[in-house]
Nucleic acid binder design. Structure first.
Length: 279
DNA sequence: CGATCTACCTGATGGC
DNA sequence: TGCCATCAGGTAGATC
């Protein structure tokens, strides 16, 4: 579900809502969402009594810094949601797996029907070295600004299809199935163009489309598809889906040339593009 | 190195 | 109404 823009929206909401709050108690309904821990007790023990001091993002990972040098790492997977509850008595949504209650009142709830998401606590200074998935993350396009020339060198040094290159978390951190298609439409490039075949002009277009698409998506608070599985911390869906150019628009008119948007299955996933204006 | 498949899960939807 | 297939924002690991 959530890609870089959605995770960034949740990060900003968390910064506003949980920084400065102290954890009073933690409830987990099983081990699935906290599978890296030995026990629920051990997970809760590392959180209880700690104040949350900051919220960062690395690609699709959220890092909630804790007083004392630990960090709560959160990945939302395909269907994970973080939702704030003002009190403790609000109805518990189905598939709520972790509930963090604050001493100041209110809760942070982790809801995840498909359970591909997870949370775990580790030490902040080792998280980017010893947690494999984070250690191998590539450049985060919004966090680590890079020039288009630098981007171009990286792109040209690989030999991969553009869509899989954009989605490779070891290369760029945060881009998934929706935004890779939207970026490639913005750049006027096909998903299966090879990364080492681009002209300087095409590299510049790709870089520009990547930055603009991600920034716009954050501005519109992310994309929620028909099932509205993605919502922000306050339970509100995003609005960027209304600005999608190709994703989930099969058969609809391309916003540039009016030809129907095509859907193709690539490696088991849907890819949307315009056959006329992406070359 | 890159591409492709499977597995991990639940739920919504559409055809018959 | 039920049953079955297909689809859904992610990632890791095996295999070629």
């Amino acid at each position: 579900m959530p890609e870089l823009p959605e995770v960034e929206v949740v990060r900003r909401d968390l910064e506003r809502e949980v920084v400065g709050k102290r954890v009073k108690s933690v409830e987990a309904d099983g081990m699935r969402s906290i599978r890296r821990h030995h026990s629920r007790k051990q997970f809760a023990g590392r959180l209880e009594g700690k104040k949350m001091t900051g919220v960062e993002r690395r690609g699709k990972y959220i890092l909630v810094k804790l007083e004392g040098g630990d960090v709560l790492v959160i990945h939302l997977g395909m269907s994970g949601q973080l939702v704030r509850s003002k009190g403790t008595r609000e109805q518990m949504a189905k598939h709520t797996h972790v509930v963090i209650t604050f001493t100041q009142g209110g809760q942070l709830r982790f809801i995840d029907p498909r359970t591909f998401g997870e949370m775990f606590v580790t030490e902040l200074d080792i998280v980017e070295k010893e947690v494999n998935e984070l250690a191998h993350l590539g450049i985060d396009p919004l966090e680590n600004a890079m020039s288009w020339e630098e981007f171009g060198r990286l792109v040209a040094s690989r030999h991969a299809k553009l869509k899989s290159m954009l989605m490779d978390q070891k290369f760029l951190a945060g881009i998934g199935n929706i935004y890779s298609d939207e970026i490639l439409w913005g750049a006027g490039l096909r998903w299966d163009r090879m990364s080492d075949s681009l002209s300087p002009e095409e590299i510049r277009r790709l870089y520009r489309a990547m930055m603009e698409t991600l920034q716009e998506a954050v501005k519109y608070r992310g994309s929620s598809l028909a099932d509205e599985q993605y919502v922000d911390l306050y339970g509100k869906p995003g609005e960027f889906q209304e600005h999608h150019k190709v994703y989930a628009r099969e058969g609809e008119a391309c916003r540039r040339c009016r030809r129907p948007v095509v859907r193709q299955r690539v490696g088991g996933r849907s890819t949307f593009f315009c056959e006329a204006c992406q070359v």
